[in-house]
Amino acid sequence: MIRSFISRAWSTLFLVAGAAVILLPFLWMLSLAFKPRDEIFSADIQLLPSRIEWSNFVVALTETDVPLFLWNGFVVVAGILAFQILFAVPCSYALAQRRFKGRTFVFGMVLAALLVPFHVTAIPIFLGFAKVGILNSYGALILPFVPTAFGIFLFRQFFSQLPSDLFDAARVDGLSETAIVWRIAFPLAMPAATAFAIFSVTAHWNDLFWPLIATTDPHLATPPRGILYFRDEESGDDVGPLMAGAVIITAPLVLAFLLAQRKFTQGLAAGGLKG
């Protein structure tokens, strides 16, 4: 009895201490974002601000490009997701529910593409985009991510579990194959689509590598790229607004995660397959 109490106490202590370390940068970021300027530059340890200072947020939202970064992030992430689904879903349906020449070959390509991390393709895509002259555009930020082997793989797994009778019934009812994809298959695949959307949105909202390469125009900066522009410009005196900006940029995904924890955990864990 006492032994189990002690072991519980120890493990709780360990877990809470670990959680405190995990939370440390979040708390420090929030604390600095709400601290008045003089408290930021004080040498005493002071986790909580003496009073809540909203002006940092006001500065970040009105005097900097943070709202623009958010908008760019939204456009890029939504554009990527929409195109990924538009291309991946019909292909997955054909791979799962139709018999055609070259089906095994196409699926083999999907599996092979799963092995290729994005970083590997960056140089040729950059060279190609430079040649065509579409660097520094939303297109440059969206296009390279349209092919999603992971998405095709995920949707194919889902579609091949659906009974083929369902699709035959739709054919009897007069739906074209395209109509079957969007009116029957896709609505049924909502659980898979949610997991995929969470994975895709998180990955591309947070991505720095490609935006750093494909754009040099600050007006096209996605949130991570933008926060770096912000940091490099302020050079040390505007820590408050910088932290407020970091909070604002991190907030959408963190809030979404807090509201839909189970779905998020599943979606991101499924991404482990792709790595």
């Binding site: 035959d168 054919r171 029957i184 609505p187």
Partner: peptide, 20 residues
């Protein structure tokens, strides 16, 4: 001709109702 053009109806063993 496709099934629909033939105007033939079919009832499936699993009923194949659209769940959504």
């Amino acid at each position: 001709k496709t099934t629909h053009q033939r105007n033939i109806a079919m009832v499936f063993q699993s009923y194949a109702l659209y769940p959504h």
